[in-house]
Design a protein around this nucleic acid. Structure first.
Lengths: 239, 239
DNA sequence: GCGGTCGCGTGACAGGCGTCACGCCGCCGC
DNA sequence: GCGGCGGCGTGACGCCTGTCACGCGACCGC
């Protein structure tokens, strides 16, 4: 069956093939059944805004497929990309659990499938399914540790090139494809967005990438980057 | 009974007077009883190191009294103070839950009472007491949100004066005492440590505080600061 | 009393990077 | 084809702030 946005819809968590891999998709059959009953599955086009920083928490979004960027903005309009969320992650959990406003905004970067669970349903779900609660605690622990790494990177880096280098190394490790020449990564973000990930400006990102090219550390072809000399890059990143 | 370090020991969580106020100290009687059975209460002098970034997780520390600083360090020896933990907080929970290395180091800033719970005991405790698991999820949510605020502050601030201003306003709201002249806060950190909280150097902190004094925004007497013109300070902080 | 240590204040200097400005290229709709 | 637009490349300039250096006062142990 053809579906909008060209992605395959998975309507049934119990039968979802991602079960083994993803943290939140790996629970007892009873919990899965309850989750199936209270969730609302939807497809969102690229650029959909799931929730906005400061809103009262309506509930959680479970990311099934696609990628979502989590951002926070200053009153002057500067934006920081806090995290790129990937399938299996739960978005808005902390705000939903505590009843405090969403602390970040969430926007899909690609056409994505998400399961929405209303706040009341989610809290009742956690209260009645011990393993779901435990899974949520694990998810929150991971989110906390990821945030901690972000703090390290933002707070301890000596220079912007260090931050950019670290980001590239991160992407290599998580999405890189090995090639004879080096590791290839596909950057689906604009320079502007890369800048927002490391708290700098577009111009600086452009200049640093040119620097790296000039030094023979990497190669840029359209939206793909090939890291030619990883050791050189690692030398720059001492965090 | 006189105790070491001049603080009052509370050996019994069930009878602890902090019960109502603190998140983790407010659970069902059954859970409290179990917690009492598995915890080890100790007093630590100022400067005690509870755990170090990178260590395998031995378990969690529940902070009963005193303050603890959580830090992370770069390979070059630069240190960032990630958070000042206060009574009622659980330290090391995320690492303990996930079985990953502690992501920060913890060191007491004052003589402190802590309850230690071994990893196995803690995990079993969460598995068998639904409300304890829920409380932990709430704790983790709070820690995550605090980390998120830290990211905002580090990543979106335009200048160091903005970060210092924000820190001072934070302290005012949380520990400030109103006086006729303004809000008085007691800074129990050295300039060096303040610098480590906002990712800058001691000299810059000294200079900025002098600036603020010169502008009549605040007054420094030893380790106490009186904020005289809060609106001025808020104008500097636009995050 | 006195040397050592620790925390604070301040000056000089260099350079990284944010800001502004402009030009180029590829893509899209009409 | 062509105008508009979004994304990228690059130059000039200036400020913030990190770095190094030195001095001063407070406190402590001997």
């Amino acid at each position: 069956m053809p579906s909008p946005y060209n992605i395959e819809i998975q309507n049934n968590c119990t039968a979802c093939s991602r079960s083994e891999a993803q943290l939140f998709c790996d629970m007892s059959p009873a919990a899965m059944k309850t989750l199936d009953a209270i969730k609302f599955t939807s497809l969102y086009p690229k650029g959909s805004i799931l929730f906005v920083e400061g809103e009262e928490p309506r509930g959680v979004f479970i990311l099934c497929s696609g990628r979502t960027k989590l951002t926070t903005s200053s009153s002057e309009g500067r934006t920081l990309i806090v995290k790129l969320a990937e399938p299996g992650e739960v978005l808005g959990a902390s705000a939903t659990i505590l009843g405090t406003p969403y602390e970040v905004s969430a926007e899909t970067l690609e056409p994505s499938q998400l399961n929405f669970v209303k706040r009341d349903d989610f809290l009742r779900f956690l209260g009645t399914h011990a393993d779901a609660c435990m899974h949520t605690a694990q998810q929150l622990s991971e989110k906390y540790q990821a945030a901690q790494r972000e703090i390290r990177s933002l707070g301890l880096a000596q220079s912007t090139s260090e931050k950019l280098g670290k980001l590239l190394l991160d992407w290599c490790d998580r999405h890189g494809e090995a090639t004879p020449k080096g590791t290839r990564i596909k950057v689906l973000l604009t320079h502007e967005e890369v800048a927002q990930m490391i708290g700098t400006t577009r111009e600086t990102v452009t200049r640093l990438l040119s620097d790296f090219k000039r030094k023979g550390i990497l190669e840029v072809k359209g939206s793909t980057i090939v890291i030619l000399r990883r050791p050189e890059l690692e030398k720059l990143v001492t965090i």
